[in-house]
Design a binder for these strands. Structure first.
Lengths: 198, 198
DNA sequence: TGCAAATATTACAAATAACGTATAATTTTA
DNA sequence: TAAAATTATACGTTATTTGTAATATTTGCA
């Protein structure tokens, strides 16, 4: 699964775009081939059917965002920058997998999809969790911070940040994110230096 | 075509939403019925087929935005407000008919669609054109302004206003629109009062 | 209440679209 | 140029969608 063929990559990308936009069911194999400038035969050379392509798309999205996440976490940056970037990455990540795609892909009680997603999600989750633990040991978070709590809260924050009213209070999304980052970093007290870094 | 039934309206609205999102081909009649809480029989009572529903959707969108346009044009407002609102209405109008919908609906060399759209468009256009002429007589535009030129320019402006770079120069879309409105109203010279109102 | 009109349900034949495969022709690439 | 990869075309098989009919059920109204 490491190095992928040109055609294979083209199919994967086109599938991603189309699935993202229209969901799983509404997109046909022939359409993907057309958009990817690929023949149907080549499609079937690399993927047994549409479902397997969709799984590959899902996996690639998850892998990609995990890689992005890790790159930030392991970068040589001051903690406040790191946290800002993590938060922004999460925001972008919201748009990586569309409602339409997941609705078709997960919602329908079709074969094995639920299992596939849950497995992949759990793998990714445990990787992320370990990364967070190491980050805590390295001083990105204070030692007595409950990581599960933090992850839950920062997850919820994505929803909050997308709230229309809240956004209307700021002239740009960046400002709102910055506000949240500061809240997370420094709390509400007027301190000059980070409180949560050990 | 004046007063429409509850169910009929529901089908029209649902069709509009789904077509807008996914285009014409990707949406099925049964899906529309499901979303509209309507039976297939009722669908066929009001529309002979999907195509006629789509035409009705298209017409309703066009009629609606024309009505909106006229309401602004005939309102009792100072010229600068009128022009600002016209510009904003145009911006919103950009989103009324989606790429996907028109691509399926117009692009495919299917039966009669091109004709239908072109006819409707021309009707609307000539109505709008007459409205503009009357507005010019009433003093909203200066007498020596070429209306075709104005309409063309303000059409182009929509594209310009949606340019990402240009938007990045302003903290909100409103500000950018205001800038353009002022440019259109007052030109670039530092005058205190409108120049283009007769 | 009771009776039309409107709507829903179910089932179905016909048409259409999508899938997946075989074969032969063509293009790439080494 | 020879081998590998890709395309083009065609085709049988399913699956889906359409449009209709016959039969309940609900709704609005006198």
């Amino acid at each position: 699964m490491r190095k992928l063929n040109k055609k294979q990559a083209s199919l994967l990308n086109t599938g991603r775009q189309l699935f993202w936009k229209y969901g799983f069911k509404r997109v046909t194999i022939e359409e993907i081939c057309r958009e990817a400038n690929t023949s149907k035969m080549t499609f079937y050379k690399y993927f047994p059917n549409k479902l397997e392509l969709a799984k590959a798309v899902f996996d690639s999205v998850v892998d990609e965002s995990l890689a992005h996440f890790q790159k930030i976490l392991h970068a040589d940056l001051p903690p406040s920058d790191k946290m800002k970037q993590l938060l922004m990455a999460k925001m972008e990540g919201t748009h990586d997998i569309s409602k339409e795609f997941l609705a078709d892909f997960y919602g329908d009680a079709e074969l094995g999809l639920k299992d596939h997603i849950e497995q992949k999600t759990q793998e990714t989750w445990s990787t992320m969790r370990k990364d967070f633990e190491r980050a805590q040991e390295n001083g990105l978070f204070r030692k007595d911070l409950n990581l599960d709590f933090y992850i839950y809260v920062s997850q919820k924050m994505i929803e909050i940040i997308n709230d229309p009213y809240l956004n209307s209070l700021y002239s740009s999304a960046d400002q709102l994110i910055m506000e949240f980052t500061n809240l997370l970093l420094y709390g509400v007290s007027p301190h000059k230096y980070p409180l949560c870094v050990a």
